[in-house]
Design a protein around this nucleic acid. Sequence first.
DNA 1: AAGGCGTGGCT
DNA 2: TAGCCAAGCCT
Length: 290
Amino acid sequence: MLRPADLDALAGWYREHARDLPWRHPDFDAWGTLVSEIMLQQTQVARVRVAIEAWLERWPTPAALADAPTHEVLRQWGTLGYPRRALRLQDAARAIVERHGGVVPRDVDALLALPGIGDYTARAVAVFHFGDRHPVVDTNVRRVVARAVHGQGEQGPAARRDLADVEALLPGDAADAGVLSIALMELGALVCTARAPRCDACPIADACAWRAAGYPAYEGRRAPRQARFAGSDRQARGTVLRALRGLDGPIAEAEAAGLWPDAAQLERALASLAADGLVVREDGSVRLPH
DNA sequence: AAGGCGTGGCT
DNA sequence: TAGCCAAGCCT
């Protein structure tokens, strides 16, 4: 159980050890916060750190991104991965312009209604930028709570009840609740890590149920393992997009055949990329969307 | 609700 | 090294 004294210890630890990240600076506006959170969906902090500045310099407002050519958006996204996020980010920018006058909304339900924004990202913006009181639940928070509160070594697959689970831990004051959320995330990222947790450096080690139980091995359900990447359709998609990003114009489909050894798999990749709106197939060639 | 979806770093 | 993991979202 986390007592008020433990929450204080956590907050104190955060003040002392928090990384100096661009999106934590006070001059970071709501749009910058939203963009950073989208980029951080399954992409490491170190890589987002490098990419965020140029992105915001180029498109400093939702209106600016809404008006950009989509092929340039995909090029600027570069190798951050999961390029559908770039399309949805532009769609979100357009929705912000149309529905909210170009101003990033503060309301969680309005944020959730934007493409590419789910439970985590919506509340991250509402809490970390606007300072409202909501549970912010990412994989780090789920892991720390699984260990410290529930005595489990791993968090298991994400579930709808995670939100209510963390809500129950939050102090009543919005500012205190926000510090707890960001501190839980930072603790999970730096100390209470998935592999080789550094319990000797943990500010709440004395309160940790997992530690108290002697670090029992995890017996619960796990998320299914990812399919192997090498030779996958995903790799084929990535190869096609990488080639298109490096060119100004289209690639003839006959030429595209040279990008991937398995013709049937390449065709699946092209079809799914087109279905996602990441490429356009016309006149026997493939290109990025305008 | 289980699986698809990039890319790179770490062990 | 092969697999795990990373501030998830969508269907």
